[in-house]
Computed example of a mutant assay.
Amino acid sequence: MAVFTEVTFEEVDAFVSTLDVGRLTALRGIGAGIENTNYFVSTTQGEWVLTLFERLSFEQLPFYLHLMRHLAQRGIPVPEPRSDGNDQILHQLKGKPAALVNKLVGGHQLAPDLHHCEQVGEMLARMHLAGRDFPLAQPNLRGLPWWQETVPVVLPFLAPEQRTLIEEELAFQAELAVSAAYKDLPRGPVHADLFRDNVMFEGLPGRERLTGFFDFYFAGIDTYLFDIAVCLNDWCIDLDSGRGVDERAAVFVAAYERVRPLTSAERRLLPALLRAGALRFWVSRLWDLHLPRDASMLKPHDPMHFERVLRERIATPWHPQGERDA
């Protein structure tokens, strides 16, 4: 989230008036994130988040918005897009695609403990099951084809040893993707970006309850295992070293498996998908750092973090197991 497109109070007031959410009372830009323009919107009827989409097209966006609606209607705590009088949930503001969703309660947990990881693991599995009958299909737009397209663009900015690492890992993931074992992995709609800052909790310290997942605008059809790997690489690691924290990972995996048990192939390929998750975010952070877009409050993330994570996953393959298998 960031602010690339400035909007005025009057423009947003006119916009929300078409969505039956009351009159605008406050508007505040959101500085976190790097993809879209986002504002907190307060009205006489509640709290909302307004998103103007800077990269995704009108043709791509129905997948994300209808997925959020689908999950919300099946009891998964995610923001639900607000529709107009014609039941349209994709709108337009300042010439950009736009959506208004309800604001989740609570705050981020940036230093997760076991009970946070347990709740995220369980809710991720519930989300995967709830999405199985979602009728729309769109690939993960930040998957292997995007890595193959983007790595040559960022190579000139890398040191020789970094170039070797990223090219060798890209070749490894390309080979994995055509294997029979990979093609047989269970798949469906995934979040693909479920970091600590995309989950909300509420409650007293040590007793917080999960109140929702948000920012589904990297979602797509992919393996459930990739979604699990992205989570493990953020929720269950030591951020300074990139090393996995086995105790947190065991709780996460056990909670997930209470809802949707992993297949034997998923267990076998998890170390490779943990590498894939690290590569994906190293590539995207390199791209955002070296080829930035102008935006108010834009704060690109440090790509070196996921370089460290990738090196750690290669040097020491990680096999997180649920508590029952530990």
Rank of each mutant, 00 (worst) to 15 (best):
R248W: 03
A99S: 14
T44A: 05
A255Q: 07
L19S: 07
T43P: 06
L279Y: 11
T150G: 08
A72L: 09
C231L: 04
H301M: 08
A326Y: 00
E118I: 10
R280K: 15
H319A: 01
L136K: 13
E149D: 07
W282Q: 12
A111H: 12
I314T: 11
L273K: 05
L204N: 14
V12F: 05
F172S: 10
R268M: 01
T263I: 02
Q148K: 08
E6A: 15
A249M: 02
I228D: 03
L158R: 09
T18F: 03
T37P: 14
P152D: 09
P156I: 07
P292W: 14
L90N: 06
H301T: 00
Q109T: 10
A99N: 13
Y217S: 07
C231P: 04
F134E: 05
V151N: 10
M297W: 12
A111D: 15
A111Q: 15
T263S: 15
L141F: 13
I76N: 09
V41Y: 03
V190S: 14
Y64N: 12
G322H: 05
A111L: 08
N102H: 09
T164P: 03
G121D: 11
L19Q: 04
M304P: 00
G107Q: 05
L27Q: 11
F9S: 08
R243D: 09
F226G: 10
Y224N: 08
G33S: 04
L93P: 13
A272N: 11
L141C: 04
Q88P: 03
H70T: 06
R311N: 03
A192L: 12
V251H: 07
I228H: 01
N233A: 10
D227F: 06
A326T: 06
P79D: 12
Q321M: 05
A125V: 03
V153Q: 14
D13N: 14
F15C: 07
P62A: 01
R275F: 04
A255N: 03
T25V: 14
H305S: 03
L286C: 11
S284R: 06
D184L: 10
H290D: 06
R293Y: 02
G29H: 06
Q148L: 07
L273I: 05
E307H: 12
P160D: 15
V309D: 12
R132E: 15
L65P: 09
R268Y: 01
P156C: 04
Q162R: 13
W146M: 12
R82C: 10
I34M: 10
G31K: 08
D302A: 09
V190C: 15
A2K: 02
L291Y: 08
P303Y: 07
A130K: 01
A2T: 15
F281L: 10
G22R: 06
M127H: 06
P81C: 10
P79W: 01
Y182V: 06
A276R: 10
I34T: 13
V283A: 04
L239R: 11
L269W: 00
P292D: 00
A26N: 15
A180Y: 01
W282H: 11
D238Y: 00
L269Q: 03
R248A: 01
I30T: 02
T150Y: 03
A295F: 04
G143T: 11
A326N: 09
